[in-house]
C-alpha cells in the first residue's frame, strides 16, 4: 500500500485516492437524486398555486367590474358588490397598523436594547415566540371577552382592530427583534463610545439599519391580519352592511368575511362573486408584499 511507501517523518496518509475515485460516482448520483427531489417539492407548491390562480381568475374575472366596487352586498349575485368590505378592511388596517406597529416595535426595542439578559426576560422572549403559534380563533375569543364585552366596544372597528393587533403582535415583535439583533454590536459601541445615550444610539444608529427589516416584517404581519377571518367571526362582525362606517366606533365588515359569506351561499353564481372577492383580496395582499420588497431593496444596508 501507498501508506507504507511514505518517506519517514512525512505525515501518514489516511485518504486513499483510489477509493475516493471509486466512490465518486455514487456521491454524485446521490447529489442529483436530492436535487431532483427538492425541485419536485418546489414544483408541487407552484402547481397548487397555479391551479388556484387559474380557477379563481377564470371564475371571478367576469364579475370584476366597476359596479362590483361600487355596490353593497345584495341578495342578487349580479348586484352584489364589495364596497363595504373593501372600505371596512381599509378602516381595519388604519387601526391595526399603528397600534400593532407601535406596541410591537416598542416591545422589540425594549427587549433587545434595554432589558438585561436574565431568566425572567429569557422567559418573556420565549413566550412571545410561542404566542405567534396560538390559533387565531383563540385571539378572537380574547378580543370578544376583553374588547367587545368588558370594554363594551361592541363589534366595532376598534374592537376588531385591537383584536387583530394582538393577533399579529408576536409576529411583529419577533421580526423587529431579529432586525434589531442584526445590527452589529460594534456600531452601537462606536456610538456609546462618543458619549451618546441609549436613546440617541437607538434613533440614530440602530433603527436606521433595522427599519427595513422591521417594516418588511410588519407589513407581512399586516397582510396576515387582512386575510384573517376567524377572529372576526368570533367577535361577531356582520356581513350584510348597507352603509360605510364613519368612525372607528361603527360596525363594519371586512374582505375575508364577505368572501366567506358569498362562498357558503347555495347559488352557483355567488361562488363566482366569491372568486371576484378573492381576486380583490389577493391584489391587496400582493400590493402590500410588493411594498415590503420595495422597502427592503431600497433601504437595506450592508456591513
Amino acid at each position: 500500500m501507498r501508506i507504507t511507501e511514505q518517506q519517514p517523518g512525512a505525515n501518514k496518509r489516511f485518504i486513499d485516492p483510489a477509493s475516493v475515485s471509486k466512490r465518486m460516482d455514487g456521491r454524485k448520483i446521490t447529489n442529483t437524486v436530492f436535487k431532483t427531489l427538492f425541485f419536485m417539492a418546489t414544483l408541487v407548491a407552484l402547481l397548487v398555486l397555479g391551479i388556484l390562480f387559474y380557477r379563481i381568475l377564470s371564475q371571478g374575472l367576469g364579475f370584476l367590474s366597476l359596479d362590483f366596487f361600487q355596490n353593497f352586498a345584495s341578495r342578487f349575485p349580479e348586484k352584489a358588490g364589495i364596497k363595504a368590505a373593501l372600505v371596512g378592511s381599509l378602516w381595519l388596517m388604519a387601526v391595526v397598523a399603528p397600534v400593532s406597529m407601535f406596541l410591537g416595535i416598542g416591545t422589540a426595542i425594549y427587549l433587545e436594547e434595554y432589558a438585561k439578559k436574565n431568566r425572567v426576560n429569557d422567559f418573556i422572549r420565549m413566550n412571545i415566540s410561542n404566542l405567534a403559534g396560538v390559533p387565531s380563533v383563540v385571539f378572537g375569543l380574547l378580543g370578544l371577552t376583553i374588547f367587545v364585552r368588558a370594554l363594551a366596544l361592541g363589534n366595532s372597528i376598534l374592537a376588531a382592530g385591537f383584536t387583530m393587533s394582538l393577533l399579529i403582535l408576536p409576529v411583529i415583535i419577533v421580526a423587529a427583534q431579529e432586525a434589531i439583533r442584526a445590527v452589529p454590536q460594534h456600531v452601537r459601541e462606536a456610538s456609546y463610545g462618543m458619549g451618546a445615550t441609549k436613546w440617541q444610539t437607538i434613533v440614530r444608529v440602530v433603527l436606521p439599519s433595522a427599519i427595513p427589516g422591521i417594516l418588511t416584517g410588519s407589513i407581512l404581519a399586516l397582510s396576515r391580519a387582512i386575510g384573517e377571518t376567524a377572529p372576526l367571526i368570533v367577535i361577531g362582525v356582520p356581513v350584510i352592511i348597507q352603509f360605510l362606517p364613519s368612525g372607528v366606533m361603527d360596525t363594519f365588515t371586512a374582505l375575508p368575511m364577505q368572501i366567506y359569506d358569498w362562498a357558503k351561499r347555495p347559488q352557483a353564481d355567488f361562488q363566482q362573486v366569491a372568486s371576484a372577492g378573492i381576486i380583490v383580496l389577493m391584489a391587496f395582499l400582493l400590493l402590500m408584499n410588493s411594498i415590503a420588497v420595495l422597502i427592503r431593496n431600497k433601504f437595506q444596508k450592508r456591513y
Binding site: P184, H186, V187, E189, A190, S191, Y192, G193, M194, G195, A196, Q200, R204, V205, S209, K301, R302, Y303
Partner: peptide
C-alpha cells in the same frame, strides 16, 4: 465618554457618509 474618545480593534464606521460619520459626535 465625551472627554475620552475610543478607537476600536475593528474599524467600525457607521453605514453613513464620511461626513455624517465625523459629524455624529458633534451632532449628538
Amino acid at each position: 465618554r465625551t472627554r475620552v474618545g475610543m478607537v476600536f480593534q475593528k474599524p467600525n464606521p457607521f453605514p453613513k457618509s464620511i461626513y455624517d460619520n465625523i459629524a455624529y459626535g458633534p451632532r449628538i
